[in-house]
Nucleic acid binder design. Structure first.
Ligand SMILES: [Mn+2]
Ligand SMILES: [Mn+2]
Ligand SMILES: [Zn+2]
Ligand SMILES: [Zn+2]
Lengths: 140, 140
DNA sequence: AATATAAATGCAAGTATTTGCAATTACAAA
DNA sequence: TTTGTAATTGCAAATACTTGCATTTATATT
């Protein structure tokens, strides 16, 4: 619960206003650590709070850009977001039940630097789609 | 030019009909080897041939599923497609000019297998965004 | 060559996401 | 506290992408 206040502080330090929609959003993610949500899922969970879809999209994108959230690309191409609590990492995504698991290997650390040949890497995406242990068993 | 006929043959062998839209699509990709196109770009290039957007989307997705095309996720999340001429590979994508360069390292070959812990990997995505040599110089 | 038939297409309608803009709100300064 | 201001919001309109379905078309069979 201590994380929450610090997240709000981080937003303010970067010059953003602390609005109701942003509080709701951060509160939701903070209360479900490790889980990642799509814009649609967040919209549904915040029903009744009167937050518009466009506001959610805009804030998710903004917080991702600011390094507060990290975006995970799902199988179908839609992004889901989770708090950037710890360090940079990647995910295993179950194509059957949608569960994600964080892994702490990053291909950028494993790659031979000689492949760049003048290219300047800035960001990267790495996701592994497949079946989680539970769904692996079910679909046998 | 020999590749083209073999691509058509591959489609037929998999039980798909060889239609005009599919010929146009494959012809376009075949005549620009190494380049990758989004659905929108293909639609524009095929203007006048009377091919519908939905047909392009459906065929790109189908050919990707069949391993004839490989999808590259651009910075903004939209996919572009290129012929799967050779083996499985990944890309460097320039966020400034959009150019892509193929690299033949695959993180799946480098990763320690012990991270799966029961997860069954099926597909993966790996793309590196940054500045190509030319744009690196320009933006200095 | 004519015919049968399932696959594929184009169109239109349906979702999903993004954008422009006037009204509102957070918050800094008075 | 009140006020001024720019950031942010909600709404509506605009794009982008997807889907359902009647019609067309590729191709196997006769
Ligand atoms: Mn994670
Ligand atoms: Mn390539
Ligand atoms: Zn990484
Ligand atoms: Zn790979």
């Amino acid at each position: 619960m201590g994380e929450f206040k610090s997240l709000e502080k981080r937003l303010k330090n970067k010059g953003y206003k602390l609005t109701a929609p942003r509080r709701f959003l951060l509160g939701l993610l903070e209360n479900n650590p490790g889980k990642s949500y799509s814009a649609q899922e967040i919209f549904d969970l915040l029903k009744g709070k009167g937050v518009d879809f466009s506001t959610i999209y805009r804030n998710l994108e903004m917080m991702a850009k600011e390094g507060i959230l990290s975006a995970v690309q799902r199988e179908n191409g839609t992004s889901s977001y989770e708090l950037c609590l710890n360090h940079h990492h990647h995910h295993l995504i179950c194509t059957d039940c949608g569960a994600t698991r964080c892994i702490n290997v990053c291909p950028m650390d494993l790659i031979d630097k000689s492949i760049w040949e003048g290219f300047t890497p800035k960001k990267h995406r790495f996701e592994i789609m497949g079946l989680c242990p539970e769904c692996s068993k079910k679909n046998t």
